[in-house]
Simulated scan of single mutants.
Amino acid sequence: MPDRHDARADIAGNLRQMIAVLERERQALASLDADGLTESTRAKEQLCEALATAGPDTLDAESRALAETARALNEVNRRVRNLLAANVAARIDALGGPRATYSPAQFAHV
């Protein structure tokens, strides 16, 4: 059975890897690299699985700082993804003209 020190080292290592993946994801977002985004998503999922058993009581000061850094990077990336999605939606809306709104009169003759 691994001791507590080994478990904390594993957590810190996984968090360092997560930070590296989040930085690669940010680069992929900036360059609109679909393959890079797909790979980042896979890597994040694997790391989340590896970190699933960790809880606040298993974190030391270093791991807490790494977790906070990862949280902040993930938030930045989430905001960038949302901005990109909003820009795409605006462009699609501009191509398609104004959206049709629901009107009960449209279906009165059905």
Score class of each variant (00 low, 15 high):
Ser63Pro: 00
Arg64Gly: 01
Ala61Val: 05
Ala90Ile: 06
Arg64Met: 03
Leu51Val: 10
Ser103Pro: 00
Arg71Met: 04
Arg79Thr: 06
Gln106Val: 06
Asn87Asp: 15
Leu95Arg: 11
Asp10Phe: 08
Leu37Lys: 05
Phe107Ala: 07
Pro104Glu: 01
Asp6Val: 14
Glu62Asp: 09
Ala52Ile: 04
Arg64Glu: 02
Ala12Ser: 14
Gly96Thr: 11
His5Asn: 04
Ile19Asn: 11
Asn82Glu: 13
Glu75Val: 06
Pro98Gly: 06
Ala105Arg: 01
Val88Asp: 05
Asp35Ser: 12
Asn87Leu: 07
Glu62Leu: 04
Ala50Tyr: 05
Ala70Tyr: 01
Gly96Phe: 04
Leu84Asn: 08
Val80Leu: 11
Gly55Lys: 15
Thr69Glu: 07
Ala89Arg: 14
Val110Thr: 12
Gln46Asp: 13
Ala20Gly: 07
Gly97Ile: 09
Arg71Pro: 00
Ala54Thr: 13
Glu49Thr: 13
Val110Ile: 14
Ala28His: 02
Leu83Ser: 09
Leu32Ser: 10
Ala12Tyr: 05
Leu29Val: 02
Ala52Ser: 15
Gln106Leu: 11
Ala94Ser: 15
Asp3Gln: 04
Glu75Lys: 11
Ala89Trp: 03
Ala30Trp: 01
Ala89Ser: 13
Gln27Ala: 10
Tyr102Cys: 01
Gly96Tyr: 06
Ser40His: 07
Asn77Lys: 06
Arg24Cys: 07
Arg99Asn: 02
Gly55Ile: 08
Leu84Trp: 02
Glu68Lys: 00
Val88Gln: 09
Ala89Asp: 12
Cys48Ala: 14
Gly36Tyr: 03
Val76Asn: 07
Ile19Glu: 13
Asp3Leu: 03
Ala9Asn: 06
Glu68Thr: 00
Leu37Ser: 07
Arg24Asp: 12
Val80Ile: 13
Asp3Arg: 04
Asp35Trp: 02
Met1Trp: 01
Glu49Ile: 11
Arg91Thr: 15
Leu22His: 08
Leu51Gly: 09
Ile92Met: 15
Gln106His: 05
Gly55Tyr: 10
Thr69Ala: 04
Ala108Asp: 04
